[in-house]
């Protein structure tokens, strides 16, 4: 009964909340508009927009020693999660069966284990920093912790489900993933999409002034 609910109506509901919520949050920010700059630029703003979206993946050498832990943990978590999300065999199967109608080659089991370990280690380190560092502690709100806990639980149940091959674990994993989808548009997890715009606007502004941001 619960499995049918999770696999059926609740999936459609959570996917709808996710898509509509993300679109609305982006739309409400974009509709505010940005004044068209009139001063003579030193460099193309569009070029700066695109450049900063990519260059910001690598921290500046000046700052790296002060952000080593965050960079390494951040990359471990995000790369691990990306690999799990798009290349774990059950996920590829899910995209093929339920969403896209086609699939791709999944990663082997050992790669799944490595990705999961990276993602867990990264997430835990980032969360520990959030809790222990006075700066991130003063900034963090309940939403940040809820997001972290949900992602952690989704990853944990996903790993257990794959290791144990037990349907109840799969249902629990899917249910938590659906909760995460619902929570997503209400949270700072939105940075998954908004980072492109925030980096881009910054890069565009700096490029007009002739500075590579």
């Amino acid at each position: 009964m619960f499995a049918e609910f999770v696999d059926g109506p609740f999936w459609y509901f959570s996917a709808t909340v996710f898509v509509v919520g993300v679109v609305l949050r982006l739309f409400f920010a974009l509709r505010l508009g940005t004044p068209r700059p009139l001063s003579r630029p030193r460099e193309s703003a569009s070029r700066g927009f695109i450049r900063t979206v990519f260059t910001r993946f690598i921290p500046r050498r000046e700052f790296f020693p002060r952000m080593r832990l965050e960079v390494i943990a951040g990359y471990a978590f995000h790369l691990g999660l990306f690999a799990l999300l798009f290349f774990a065999a059950p996920h590829v199967e899910f995209y093929k069966e339920r969403i896209l109608g086609f699939g791709w080659t999944p990663m082997p089991y050992w790669a799944f284990i490595v990705s999961a370990q990276l993602a867990f280690a990264g997430l835990l380190l980032l969360w520990l920093r959030r809790v222990l560092h006075p700066v991130s502690r003063i900034l963090s709100d309940a939403g940040d912790h809820i997001g972290t806990i949900l992602v952690f639980l989704v990853m944990l149940t996903g790993c257990l489900a794959l290791a144990e091959f037990h349907d109840s674990l799969r249902v629990l994993h899917f249910f938590l993933a659906e909760l995460l989808l619902i929570y997503f548009p209400f949270s700072s997890l939105m940075h998954t999409f908004t980072f492109v715009l925030s980096r881009g606007y910054l890069g565009a502004g700096f490029a007009r002034h002739g500075v590579k941001a």
């Binding site: 409400f28 940005t34 952000m67 959030r130 700066v135 940075h191």
Partner: peptide
């Protein structure tokens, strides 16, 4: 404006800006 709104939406409260 949009630029400021997406900044407010994108911040993950990591606090690296303090550094």
């Amino acid at each position: 404006d949009t630029a400021l709104a997406v900044d407010l939406e994108a911040c993950v409260h990591c606090g690296l800006c303090a550094e």
